[in-house]
């Protein structure tokens, strides 16, 4: 078990609740797709999962920690175990593609010698080896998205959370990025992807499909409450 939501609700400020009674568990090593119409609350759910937002009610357990009970200074250590692909990328404009991808490793305190190889390899994998020194504003939307994905996976996170990660790339690149996720998943990373693109789902046999509608789950099969055992070896 990597994450468990227990009657979780979320509202922003004094607005209406955008997520209610979310009750599910994510198995370690699982591959999950989250779909649902725009405004259903996908991004909000992801924010809870990657610790950018605290729930207004209910309980979230992540990496066996009750995140509401955690002191602020304990959060960075948990966040380092999570890779995030933001819907709007959130690359650092002042940094080159290389430095953006290197960020998570530098935050973890790795030496530059340990960083250079993996970062170059990752940039190569997403087809941006020749754009390593380019700054994000000079990259196309699709290129930025690939940098964002490279940055999210470079640290081999235990949990990868991606918000519409293939929204700006063509089908071929989407397939390539997906194989990156699958590869990580095979190495034990739990993958959680919010997407509109159902063709991705078809390319990932064994993935669990979740459907969010107006802030709550359709879970006709009950797979969420009783996840199939898929513990990584």
């Amino acid at each position: 078990m990597i994450a468990a939501f227990d009657h979780v609700g979320l509202r922003y400020g004094t607005g209406a609740e955008v997520l209610h009674d979310l009750d599910f568990k994510l198995a370690r090593g699982g591959f999950y797709y989250l779909t649902g119409p725009s405004g259903a609350g996908k991004t909000s759910l992801l924010k809870l999962l990657y610790l950018a937002q605290k729930p207004t009610r209910g309980r979230i357990t992540l990496f066996d920690e009750d995140i509401l009970a955690l002191p602020r200074h304990a959060l960075p250590a948990l966040r380092r175990r999570i890779g995030i692909v933001y819907q709007d990328f959130r690359l650092v404009d002042e940094l080159s593609a290389y430095d953006n991808v290197a960020l998570p490793l530098r935050i973890m305190g790795h030496d530059e010698e340990e960083i250079a190889g993996p970062v170059a390899e990752m940039l190569d994998w997403v087809g941006l080896a020749d754009r390593a020194t380019a700054r994000p504003p000079t990259l196309s939307g699709g290129e930025q998205q690939r940098v964002a994905i490279a940055r999210a996976v470079i640290g081999k996170p235990e949990l990868l959370v991606a918000d519409e990660p293939t929204g700006n790339v063509d089908a071929e690149m989407a397939g390539r990025l997906l194989s990156l996720f699958s590869g990580l998943n095979r190495l034990g990373t739990t993958v959680f992807v919010a997407t509109h693109d159902l063709s991705l789902v078809k390319q990932t046999p064994g993935a669990t499909l979740l459907r969010l509608d107006r802030g709550t789950f359709n879970d006709p099969t009950g797979a969420l409450r009783h996840p199939p055992r898929r513990e990584a070896s």
């Binding site: 250590a77 960020l103 935050i107």
Partner: peptide, 16 residues
């Protein structure tokens, strides 16, 4: 501000 939020998201400590 945005960059700081991103760094926090990646697990940077306040000290970092």
């Amino acid at each position: 501000r945005a960059t700081i939020a991103t760094l926090h998201g990646m697990g940077a400590t306040d000290g970092q």
